[in-house]
Design a protein around this nucleic acid. Structure first.
Lengths: 226, 226
DNA sequence: TGCATATTTTACAGATTGTTCAAAACAAAG
DNA sequence: CTTTGTTTTGAACAATCTGTAAAATATGCA
C-alpha cells in the first residue's frame, strides 16, 4: 500500500520538485497551496504524513499543525526557511515530528520521511498492551489488571511498570528509568523510582510465580520472567 | 560500561550545558576547547564518539574530522552554526556521521547521539552475554547461571567474571582489571582483585573441566578455556 | 631445605545501596 | 478556593557489598 503524503507548500516550483521525488520513491502525493486548503484536504482524506511549509498564505504552518493536532497524531515534518531556535521550539511544542531547514536536499528529505514514518508506525501487535500470567498492562486505556481484577494505578506507576515489563529480564538503572519514563529533561532524585517500585509491588506482589519485580543490587530493577 | 564522549567546543557555556545533559544520560564526558586539544585527547584515550564544533580556534572542525579519519572510524557528529547545504556536504565527505545545526535542542542532540551509537554498534542481545560449558554470564539481566542453576552474584563480581571470560585465555594483571572493571579513576589496593576472584571461585569452581579461573603466578588471572 | 615473594583465605568495619515511612509539593477536579 | 489524589522529597533504618588488613598457605629459586 503506497503511503500518502500531503505536501503543503505555496511555491509551485518547490511543490512540483518535491512531488517528483516523492513519487519516484513510491509515495502517493497530494498538494495544498495554503493553510486552509491543507485543513480541507486533511479532513477530506487522512494522509499518512504531512510535509508542512511554515510560510503559507491564509493560515501559517504553525496554525495548521496545531489544528491538525487537535484531532490527530499524524506525523508532520515542518519545512522552514528560518533556522532560528525559536521556530524549532515552537514547532516542537506544536507537535511537529521533525524539521527541515530550506534549502534542503531531496536525499535528506526522503531519509527524514522514512525515519518519521518508521518512528510513528505502530504495528497492530505492538500496541500498548502487555500480558503476562495474571497480569495485563494496558497503556492504551491506562488500566492494570491483576488476576482478573482491575487495580487503580496512577499513571506514572503504570508507565514505569509498562516500561520494565516491555523488556523482561533487562536490568534498568534508576537513571535510565528516569530518562525513559519521566523524560530526559527531568532532573529529579532517583529515590523517586524506588518509591514507585514499592507502590507497584504492593499492587502486584505474589500474584504469580511466573514473573517478579526484582531489585538488582548495585544496578537497578528488572521485570523478571521465569 | 559508560560510553565516553569527547565534546570539542570552544564556547564554555555551550560545552557545560552539553556536558550536563550527557552526564545525566549516563555518558562519560571529556572536553576539548580547540582542535589541537581535541586531537591530543583523542590520542590519549579513544572515546566512543566525538561531538565536534566546526568553528574552532587553532584547527577547525573539518581538519579535526579529517585527521581522526586517518586512523579511525570513530562516530562523529558535527555541530555547526551555519545551515548552508555546502557545509553539510563538505562535512559528509569528510566522513562525519551526522549533523546538527546550532542552535539545537538537547532532545535532538541526545536522539542523534543514540541513533549514531546504535548504528555503529553491535545488537544488544549478542553483546552482553557469554556462554560456556555449564556457565552463562549475562550482563544484561545481571545473572550468573552455573550448571543450570541461578547463582546470586554481586555486580562487581559478575562484571569481573564477564571481563575475564570475554577474552578467554588472555591474562590480565590486577592493575588492568582494576582499570577496566573498576574504572581508571579507581585508586585501590590490588589485593581487592584477589578477594573477588576468591569469591567467584566459590561460586564457579569445579563445575566444568572445559574452563577454569586460573592464576598466572607473578602476573595475574585468566579465564582459561581448554 | 629454607627464604623471599606471591597468593589465598578469613574476618571485620565501613561504605554503599535499598526500603520504607511520612510529610511536603504539586496538579487536577469539583 | 477547597478537596482529593498523585508525585516527589527527605530521613531513618536495614540489608548487602566491598575493601583492607593480617594470618595462612603456596610457589619459585638458590
Amino acid at each position: 500500500m503506497a503511503r500518502n503524503i500531503l505536501v503543503v507548500e505555496d511555491d509551485q516550483n518547490i511543490a512540483n520538485l518535491i512531488r517528483m521525488y516523492l513519487e519516484k520513491e513510491g509515495f502517493e502525493v497530494r498538494h495544498a497551496a495554503d493553510g486552509a486548503q491543507a485543513i480541507e484536504q486533511f479532513n477530506a482524506k487522512k494522509p499518512d504524513m504531512m510535509l508542512l511549509d511554515i510560510m503559507l498564505p491564509v493560515m501559517d504552518g504553525w496554525s495548521v499543525c496545531a489544528k491538525v493536532r487537535e484531532t490527530s497524531k499524524l506525523p508532520i515534518i515542518m519545512l522552514t526557511a528560518k533556522s532560528e531556535v525559536y521556530d524549532r521550539i515552537q514547532g516542537l511544542e506544536m507537535g511537529a515530528d521533525d524539521y527541515l531547514v530550506k534549502p534542503f536536499e531531496m536525499k535528506e528529505l526522503i531519509a527524514r520521511i522514512n525515519a518519521v514514518l518508521r518512528r510513528t508506525e505502530i504495528p497492530e501487535d505492538t500496541k500498548k498492551r502487555l500480558a503476562f500470567d495474571k497480569l495485563i498492562i494496558n497503556l492504551d486505556s491506562y488500566e492494570l489488571i491483576v488476576d482478573g481484577q482491575r487495580v487503580d494505578t496512577p499513571p506514572k506507576e503504570l508507565e514505569l511498570l509498562y516500561h520494565l515489563a516491555s523488556s523482561p529480564n533487562h536490568v534498568y538503572t534508576r537513571n535510565q528509568l528516569l530518562d525513559e519514563v519521566w523524560g530526559f529533561d527531568y532532573f529529579g532524585d532517583s529515590r523517586t523510582v524506588d518509591v514507585h517500585i514499592k507502590r507497584l509491588r504492593e499492587k502486584v506482589e505474589n500474584v504469580s510465580d511466573e514473573w517478579e519485580l526484582k531489585t538488582v543490587w548495585g544496578v537497578g530493577y528488572k521485570f523478571e520472567l521465569k
